[in-house]
Amino acid sequence: MSDQDWTDQQPIVSIKDVHKAFGTLEVLKGVSMDIMKGEVICIIGPSGSGKSTLIRCINALNDIQAGSITIEGQEVHDTKLDKLELRKKVGMVFQQYNLFPHKTALENVMMAPIKVLKQPRDEVEVRARALIKKVRLEGKEDSYPGELSGGQQQRVAIARSLAMDPDVMLFDEVTAALDPETVKEVLLTIKELAADGMTCILVTHEMGFAREVADHIYFTDRGVIVEHGPPETFFESASDPRTKEFLGQIL
């Protein structure tokens, strides 16, 4: 299947039997999932269960040993793949924000479209200002990351990813490093994004949030998907003992 044949009736992200090991430590032991366009997926599970590794493999930040990951029909781990094409389709937001500390909020958002996509500066600036407004940071355009709170930095990071106009957004525990008060504002931004129809894949510990916005929830433990389903059934009637134990601890 090549990307020419892909239609949005097919999964936008398709993960098939992915195996990943760091040295002898096997982190993913055959993970499969399909995500349709516009879906919001939450991946939950105990620390070290391979959630973050999986999401990083989708973006080719980590390579895989076996299996396949396709985005819009395009194999991600194809060595001939133009990485730039992939990065344009997939945006990623990190736990530690990872803003560029020597650039202002606005410059952080504008940098990739100008340097990577070679788009004209004034056009990018109009879009970047709109994005900053969208993440409710109007007036903070000229602040440096060091002058912003964690939640504000994280929202700049979201705007920075959106500036590349991606089809899929990956969120890797984006609220784990934040103070409880600022978690809410970031989650609200993501919720609005989901409501706009963006395909989102989230690794998260925010169960209430997952329950509210997710179309589908996957529970991973020790490198495999133990259980998955829509939030209502997943939270009400989990069948696997490992899921039950995890939910029991966290809820």
Partner: peptide, 14 residues
């Protein structure tokens, strides 16, 4: 709802 996992907030900029 708790966030018992990995909640260190003091992440280094550099």
């Amino acid at each position: 709802m708790t966030r018992s996992f990995n909640t260190s907030t003091d992440l280094p900029v550099t």
